[in-house]
Structures are given as C-alpha cells and as structure tokens.
Design a protein around this nucleic acid. Sequence first.
DNA 1: TAGCCATATATTGTCGACATTAAATAAGCA
DNA 2: TGCTTATTTAATGTCGACAATATATGGCTA
Lengths: 220, 220
Amino acid sequence: MLVKSEHAITNADRTFFKLRKDIVEGVIPAGSKLSEMELSTKYEVSRAVIREAINRLATCHLVERKANVGARVVALSPEGLIQLYQVREALEGMAARLAARYMSDDEIADMQALLDSHFDKVKDGHSYYQEAGDVDFHYRIVTGSKNDHLISVLIDGLYHLVRMYRVQLGMAGPRVSTAFDEHRHIVNAIANRDEELAEMLMRRHILYSKNNIEKKLNHG
Amino acid sequence: MLVKSEHAITNADRTFFKLRKDIVEGVIPAGSKLSEMELSTKYEVSRAVIREAINRLATCHLVERKANVGARVVALSPEGLIQLYQVREALEGMAARLAARYMSDDEIADMQALLDSHFDKVKDGHSYYQEAGDVDFHYRIVTGSKNDHLISVLIDGLYHLVRMYRVQLGMAGPRVSTAFDEHRHIVNAIANRDEELAEMLMRRHILYSKNNIEKKLNHG
DNA sequence: TAGCCATATATTGTCGACATTAAATAAGCA
DNA sequence: TGCTTATTTAATGTCGACAATATATGGCTA
C-alpha cells in the first residue's frame, strides 16, 4: 500500500480514498451495510472498482466482509477502542525507540521547530491546530522509525480508525497543553538518542490518551 | 481478513492461499514479476480472481504493486528481516502482556501441556516438531491476547513473511533447547499473571532470535 | 554515433453480463 | 397453527472484452 492520496493515479485509488473519507467521517454510518451495486451508482464507477476499494478497506479494518454475503462498516465499541490503543501503544512505542535510533539530526531539528510553531498556535487559542498538530507529531515519529511495516500499519491502517473514533464520538478532547508537554519530552528523549526513555514516554503518552477517552466514553 | 484456510469458500480465497503458499515457499521466486495473464492461465482462473489475490497479498507485504506497471514478489533483504523483527518484538511483546491479562486458566493449562509434549518430542530428537512447536506457541500467545488487530497483523500478515525468510534462507536454526526454555519462562510469567515480565521475556526471546538469524546472514 | 521522439506492443485498469450463492418468501404437511 | 421445505429474489462471485497506460522498438535528426 502506502499510496499517498496526492498522486492517486487509478480510478480505484480515488474511489478508495473517497469511500474511506466518507466512512471515517460518518457520512456512511458505522455498522451499515455496503452494497456494491448501490455504491457503484453513487460513486459513478463500475462494481469492480467498488469491490477493489472495499477489499482495501477491509484490510484497514474499516469494513468487515463475509463471503457471498457482503461488507459492513465496522461498528464502534469501547472494546474496539481499547484494542486499538493497545496496539498503538506497542507500535508507536517501538516507533519512538527506532526514531531515537534512526532519525537524522536535521529531521529532529525540524520536528522541534514544528513543535514550537504548534505550541505557539495552541497557546494563542487556535484550537483548530490541536488535532492537526497531534497528527503531524505522531506522523513524524512513525516515519522517523524508517520501518516500512510500522509506517504502513499505523499510517495506512490504524490512524484512520483512530480518526473515525475521534470524529464520530466527537472527542477533539482537552488534554491540549499536557499533551504538548508530553510531545516535548518525547522529542527531547529522541534528541538525546535515549531509545529506552523515548519508548517509555510514548507508551505513557498513548496510555494517558486512552484513559482520557475511556473516561469520556463512560461519563459522557 | 482472518480467513482460515480450512473453510476457504470462494475461488479467490483458494487462489490467494495457493499463491501465498507458492510465494512463501519460493516456488515463485522472491523479487520476480507477477503477470496477471500468466498466473490466470497457470492457476486456471480469470484475471479478476488473480487480481484480487494479488491485492490481498500486497496488504500482507508479500508482494508490492505499482499502478499501471504490475506486482512483484518482495525481495528478501537483511534490512527487511530486521524491520520485521522490530515489529514482531513490539507486537508479540504486547501480545504476551495481554495474554497474561486475558487468557483463561484453562487456556494457560492447555498451553503448558502443549509445551510439555513439544519438549518431549524435541528431547527425543524429533527436529521436525521444532518449528511447528515454535509456531504453535506463538500462535497461542497471540490469540490469547484477544486483540483482533494483533491477531490479524501477526497471523494473517507478518508470520507468513517470517516463514518466507525461514524457508528461503534455510534457517530452521539451532537454538532449540534454549528457545524452549524461553517459552517455558514466558508461560510461567503468564500463569503468574505477571504482565510486565511476560512482555519483557517475549521481547528478549524475539531479540535473541533476531540476533541469531542476523549472525547466520552475515557469517553463513 | 548518440540522443530524442514517434510508433508499436504488451500489460494493467475498467466495464457490463453471466453464474452462483445466500436470504426472503411462499407453499405444503403434520 | 407451526414448522419444514421448495421457490423466488437479490446480492455477491466470476468471467471475457474493451480502454488506458507504460514499456519496448524503430526511425529520425544533430
């Protein structure tokens, strides 16, 4: 995979991206059935294109498909969210460790600068940048690991599910300044090439996020 | 995904399994090109079926596909092997942690019995069971995590790549008795519900395997 | 001769029609 | 009436043909 949405060359690519967007953002409701015929008329492509798109979505765990029956958008559940964050903790923890090992000094400097600019914006009350900043940060760490498996599983797969939970359960969340502090600490550990600390801090960071979201799920 | 090869109902399923088997076992050489027409005649199915199979293989990272160009079997490289084991360390470490949390007492007892039988066989010199036993053990841990993402990424994805490296680089490896001791320690930690230790031991176990294979790659 | 451009060829991408399967419905029997 | 079974229906699975794209070939110009 690892297809960047910018140079989506084939028609199936574009349809895949559109479908994924609509699922993540709830335009197509979670748990609903995906009819190939219906979608092929709606998105104005042949069934073969829709089928390929659905197959790709299935490998991202955004839809589940049964042979001779059809595909459904995944249902969002507390258990699903917990499982998602368990895997994030493992993978992004390792990503932080590898980023501390493999990122170049320039990449680290860039990431620090990015963090500064994000912090300024959040400090000034631009809450819009909050999630975008979070996403940017995690992307840098993951790509900084230089590990193709980590990159594809997280960026092409899990992150879309994470966004789906965020969007549809409406948790842009507070935890802004504290999260930024945690980001800062992680980057410092990476700059110091302290793999052990980088992994530990990233795992804690994700655990805190999970706890925060769980609290919202239960009390809100 | 999570399609068990036993009840592969559709034709695309069967073709997918056959193709995957031939790639993992080197019948189709690593790095070679996959022609849709050629394969459709060879496996006696239509191109659509082959295309779907190839798409699925691409998400398993067993083949790489380029738009309008075609698909190639992945090339085996030392870097690829290292990246693979980095992800295994993270995911299986977490799997061991979750197994210590979620496996039932019965499941743990079963796993201990399995380990006993495997140990007896290996002790008696049945080297055939060595890899099978290793595979069995790791499967139990992963499924014991009760985490669908872990299960699918590892069992449907990475393990086939691992097997591809093992088969094609011919590393059934020694490390038999030591590996079984490590397995025993991990199971003990799980039986004691010691999540921390279970994860640490599993990570070490996989690190040792990686170092062992790396040594072979360099010196052999 | 070397490099570039146009053509030719072969492969992948896309489509609509047919085959097959699962579910929904209706009929038959106890 | 209630359940089982046959039929219908509507979806997915599969196929072969056509369109679009990339590579290979050949010719032209400097």
